[in-house]
Design a protein around this nucleic acid. Structure first.
Lengths: 335, 335
DNA sequence: CCGGATTAGGTTACCGGTAACGTCGCATCC
DNA sequence: GGATGCGACGTTACCGGTAACCTAATCCGG
């Protein structure tokens, strides 16, 4: 073993009487060694408890990194949490590690994060955001690594896109509501008018209404982060303008549940007096007195598919430029 | 600029007519350069858009890494999500990056994660778990980097401990319940009997009852992950054994809300017929028809404090071995 | 039995920072 | 005026893998 520190590739090689390169080849599962050599190497590796040095591997002119950067809007959302957990787990099984960041729906924060990430020479980047700053785009180009845009679908992906159409999710919910005979519909959203996935659902929703000549009776776009509170107070604010509604579509399930709490408090019956629909398919939606009408997102499956797509891309295997994940409108009983 | 690729330290140095080392010193904010040189370097760095190579920095015999590993039970919990987001943000401001993993309350998964992390030569490790395998402990010793055990307090920290006593949280809630006159109390938990923070709260809770000579009237330990469903069905299962209760303490708020949904469905009034208490202080707890009795955890503050403590430790500044974060019992109106 | 293809390795160069240490000039002080 | 100290740099060595290239032995069909 070299003077101090942990055993390295060279230590394994020396005790076995082979070269570093042979050991490296075996460990990377490359070709160019016999069965016998492979077994001897693996045995010695196990005996010494050798730990590879990813830093060194990712360094060099070769630079074969196993690091993948992932940036989502926030870490406090169970939806993104589920995607991340699934992605992390799947990538780990495939031999990759992640560096996770959040951009809080601000393109500048994404850019700052990406700049830091770039200094770690990642093998690929996964972004969950609709808007990228010009700096981000330039940096991605410079980095020259695969990029997966997930969560939403883009018309022109930078490289890969994996997700589903939030616009269609909104559209579908509008059709569901109008088909149920709702006439005076309101919308409560969050994150202002920023170009987020939620805003895209809103646009799809209004389009769905427009299809049959309807418009929103009222809308309330809070600037807060989505959440139970926001749904509660957003509903209160909207109704305080003395509008009469027979249904409300919410930014997401948390806000819908918050809204439900307010509606119940002021004595409205759901769905008799007013209908409610959310988005996201969170677990809580199914234990309410009445199962919430929502759109379920297969987050864990999404994470797994993203992991597989990115790794295929890195291995040079053919990958579809756009992969659509199927979402499901859960009728529930609040419409 | 060297043949191909991005500008490096050497390129900056050459155009300025100084050595790489001088540029490195300026960029790291070390000493040994004049004001004039500093300004010239910074200007050239800005002009070329130089990006440092953390890989190279963390490599070498020097090995000054800015990577910090963080492992939490799961990424789908808003509580841990909030801690991670705050930790991530605070560490980023201090010039550090994180590599995040989850262990799903299984010490073996934590060990596998740590082994992978170790191959990236991190500067420090943050663990949110009560149980560590012997392999984990050995590896941590070998790595020889600062270790912060967060979330729960341990009697003998490996290095640093930052958190609060889950045992005391449970104890305090027991006192709150008994002080309110509750006599026949049940408990609904998750994750089986594994040595988790939740189980520690359970133990503190039973101790609190024992203090005044009481015992639990019923208890239900599900093996599932905590969640709304689990709370709902756990309550159903417990009550199906024909026990009569006047209060239930839950693993956490999500389960309490799930339980509340079941209790309401079967026609029990809260808190008149039965009291309910959760833990965690999640946002949803405050928009229920009656504000949920719970324990609020300052997750964002915890993340910030952990970041500062770890960085102080890395800089060699003195740091308290144990830091206690104050939690707050929210009386609510469900007890 | 021979020549080209394949297999199983070895050799070399290199990546981009950083600790450690050496050096030089200049101000200071006795 | 010589010794001393220190600020401001320059030099050197090095980390641990990996692509690219090279070599020797083996194999196999004609």
């Amino acid at each position: 073993m070299t003077k101090r520190g942990k055993p390295g590739l060279e230590d394994i090689a020396r005790t076995l009487g082979v070269s570093k390169m042979t050991v490296s080849r075996v460990l990377r599962g490359a070709t160019g060694f016999s069965e016998v050599t492979r077994d001897r190497v693996l045995q010695e590796v196990a005996r010494t408890g050798y730990l590879p040095n990813r830093l060194a591997a990712a360094f060099g002119p070769s630079g074969s990194s196993t690091l993948i950067g992932v940036c989502v809007p926030r870490l406090t959302s169970p939806l993104f949490g589920s995607v991340l957990e699934s992605l992390n787990h799947s990538l780990a099984r495939l031999g990759y590690q992640t560096m996770i960041g959040s951009h809080n729906q601000l393109p500048e924060e994404e850019e700052v994060w990406l700049r830091t990430l770039a200094s770690w020479k990642p093998a690929a980047v996964v972004l969950a955001s609709r808007m990228h700053s010009t700096g981000t785009l330039a940096l991605l180009r410079d980095m020259g690594v695969p990029v997966a845009e997930i969560w939403d679908l883009t018309t022109k992906p930078i490289d890969l896109a994996i997700g589903f159409s939030h616009f269609d999710n909104g559209l579908e919910m509008a059709r569901c509501m109008t088909a149920a005979g709702r006439k005076r519909i309101g919308y409560v959203g969050a994150l202002g008018n920023r170009n987020t996935s939620g805003h895209l659902r809103f646009q799809g929703f209004t389009r769905g209404l427009a299809e049959i000549g309807m418009t929103l009776t009222a809308e309330e776009h809070l600037h807060d982060q989505p959440g139970f509170y926001a749904g509660y107070y957003g509903t209160e604010t909207m109704l305080s303008r003395n509008v009469t509604l027979d249904a409300i579509y919410y930014h997401d399930d948390e806000m819908a549940i918050g809204g439900l709490a307010y509606l119940t408090r002021i004595g409205l019956r759901v769905p008799e007096d007013i209908g409610v629909a959310g988005w996201g398919g969170m677990e809580a939606a199914s234990i309410l007195p009445r199962r919430l009408t929502t759109t379920a997102i297969p987050t864990a499956r999404l994470g797994k598919i993203v992991a597989e797509a990115v790794v295929s891309r890195l291995r040079g295997d053919p990958v579809a430029e756009v992969t659509i994940i199927q979402t499901r409108l859960v009728p529930g009983s609040t419409i």
